[in-house]
Design a binder for these strands. Structure first.
Lengths: 148, 148
DNA sequence: TATTGTTATACTCTATAACTATA
DNA sequence: TATAGTTATAGAGTATAACAATA
């Protein structure tokens, strides 16, 4: 019985293991590159979310990235310290803040996308067009799963 | 420009973010279930690898699961303490050990696969057949990536 | 001398609980 | 009183470096 014929439970098992291992593999590969600045998964995801939505509050970012508010506090603080995002008072609710990318944040995001994903991008180029196509078709589903 | 038409770099970016977030999401969901015993990603992956290959050395397991030997030492020690794997002298090289599943380990693996993947399996059932098909086709590619 | 595995230690990331400020 | 965010603290998981045993 091949993977493509597996049952739902097998699919869950295999998917969980592959996704966990790939996440670990990417993290390890990234760390080996010694980039400046060294950005973690959630930091980079937060930058990408801010690029997409322009302005978000810390709470919105935490919800979107599936981390707790204190974790996003640290992520936001680190990104602000690096000059990659900026914080402004919320227009109506003074308990909240708005976060947005700085020009430097935008630059770094572009740079990091090229450099930090070098390993994954290289591996993707080594795949066949059919394999890449399979990933592209699965990508929206993976995104849906990660948000649900 | 939709995801399915994206360039290779965009694919790498999106894939990395989705995979990272899904791994984090699954870990969080798992922890909420309070299972007995509480098994981490790498512990479960090690059990699954031992089920597949019957007998492996700690070094082989570490290489397969992309963790460093000291990490696998901890994983193996915890699984042995739980009675889920057993250790035996290596037949020829006395520096090494062979690891294999105990009967209890096999039971727990089956049980954990049902219980611990409940969240992911439920989400997978909520997908359309087309979406599940996309994941099934991508799965071997994800496995390949995670091993490369 | 090289290799396998372990021990000691430290780091990264995230979580829960308690607190502050504002609604 | 409820909510957004922060601070303090702890836990899980992994890594590097140093060590022990064997090849």
């Amino acid at each position: 019985m091949t993977v493509s014929e597996s049952t739902g439970t097998d699919l869950a098992t295999s998917l969980r293991i592959s996704v966990s291992r790939l996440a670990r593999r990417m993290r390890a590969e990234r760390a080996a590159q010694g980039l400046v600045p060294e950005l973690a998964d959630t930091q980079l995801a937060a930058l990408a979310a801010l690029e997409k939505h322009q302005v978000m509050t810390p709470g919105e970012l935490a919800g979107r990235e599936q981390v707790r508010p204190p974790s996003m506090t640290r992520v936001a603080a680190s990104l602000e310290a690096l000059g990659l995002i900026q914080r402004a008072p919320h227009p109506v609710d003074h308990r909240q803040f708005t976060l947005s990318l700085t020009a430097r944040g935008r630059e770094v995001l572009a740079e990091v996308r090229q450099l930090r994903e070098a390993w994954l991008a290289r591996r993707l180029r080594e795949l066949s067009p059919v394999e890449r196509g399979a990933l592209r078709k699965a990508l929206p589903v993976l995104e849906k799963l990660s948000r649900s």
